[in-house]
Design a protein around this nucleic acid. Structure first.
Lengths: 187, 187
DNA sequence: ACCTGAACACCGTTCAAGT
DNA sequence: ACCTGAACACCGTTCAAGT
């Protein structure tokens, strides 16, 4: 039971929360999202119980991180309206693939995160999927992309691309994504 | 230190090895390749040390399993010579994607398995990559596929497809693979 | 030559006791 | 209201002792 319903949180609690997020970001960047939570707590200078008090699951912690870090990504996604429909789609997928690879293991969490609507991750997933869907609809309407391509296809491609980046290389992931998008274009 | 250099293994050792492989197959099918090795040993009726004696790492155990189970897959790959180059490529990727998804978590092991040449998994990976490369070369020579598509692209596509099957659905994986191969075809 | 299982290490998660 | 850290559970891996 973390922060009470109506009250504003205590000052030290808020500071601990911030430190936990900052150290989690550093640890996940270096060791991936499967890194020991104990090391996050230690680096933040709090006991392990404090971490669980703020973030009851690993998903919740990653979700809170993305909530902040993804703002820039979403804004970039909105500026893509200026590009041609096909180019906007390409750049959006590339943006997300690059971004999702900041933490090793994140691609899997995002792919699974579309499931449980309760998790904080779901919000980020949904928003990413939304932008992708809007871009796809625009491209379909403009007649540059096959009519049968769905938003789910784009979401799957983003995750597969991020995963390939983790397990092969950025170059290989870029090649795969490029071929797939070419295949989605009108013949 | 498992079976001695020149000698043939003891009868009970051989039987234990077989039972371990059989139970590992069952457990991995049900719970994925990350399932507790302890449960494999217990089901096989041996102590955990015996499992480690036969298979020093999880990779070695999975590698030994694939060595046997992949025979049918490789034979199927060889019969694809009868198909048209493009169709053969499609069917091969679909075959591997379906096959690689029998154990949850296998896609990741295969993708990483191309690294350490010592592991038993490497043999399976190499052979899968080889067949893919032969099919790609044939398709390129026939002029139905872009000249810049590599065997590594096919290997990456197989793994990404298998992973998508694990984390989304068989249908979604099939769609993604289909678009990617379309994008590899000559314009 | 092979098997056993206790022993150790490591990490996740909870919760009674503190402030 | 929040924090602490011991306690418990679970699994990986090794290795001395057995047969």
């Amino acid at each position: 039971m973390s922060p009470a319903a109506g009250r504003r949180p205590r000052a030290d609690a808020l500071r601990n929360r911030e430190r936990l997020l900052a150290e989690a970001d550093a640890v996940f960047r270096e060791h991936g999202t499967d890194a020991p939570l104990e090391s996050v707590a230690r680096r933040a200078g709090v006991a392990i119980g404090t971490l669980y008090g703020h973030f009851p699951t690993r998903r919740a912690l990653v979700g809170a991180l993305l909530r902040e870090r993804n703002e820039a990504l979403f804004e970039a996604g909105d500026t893509l309206r200026d590009q041609t429909p096909g180019e906007a789609l390409r750049r959006w997928v590339d943006l997300v693939v690059t971004h999702a690879a900041t933490y090793r293991g994140l691609a899997a969490m995002l792919a699974d995160g579309a499931d449980d609507e309760a998790s904080e991750l779901y919000a980020s997933c949904a928003r990413m999927a939304d932008i992708g869907e809007r871009l796809i609809n625009r491209a379909v309407t403009a007649g540059v992309v096959r009519a049968d391509v769905t938003g789910a296809d784009i979401f799957a491609l983003m995750n597969a691309g991020a995963w390939t980046r983790e397990h092969a290389s950025a170059e290989q992931a870029a090649r795969l994504v490029a071929y797939t998008i070419d295949g989605m274009l009108k013949p």
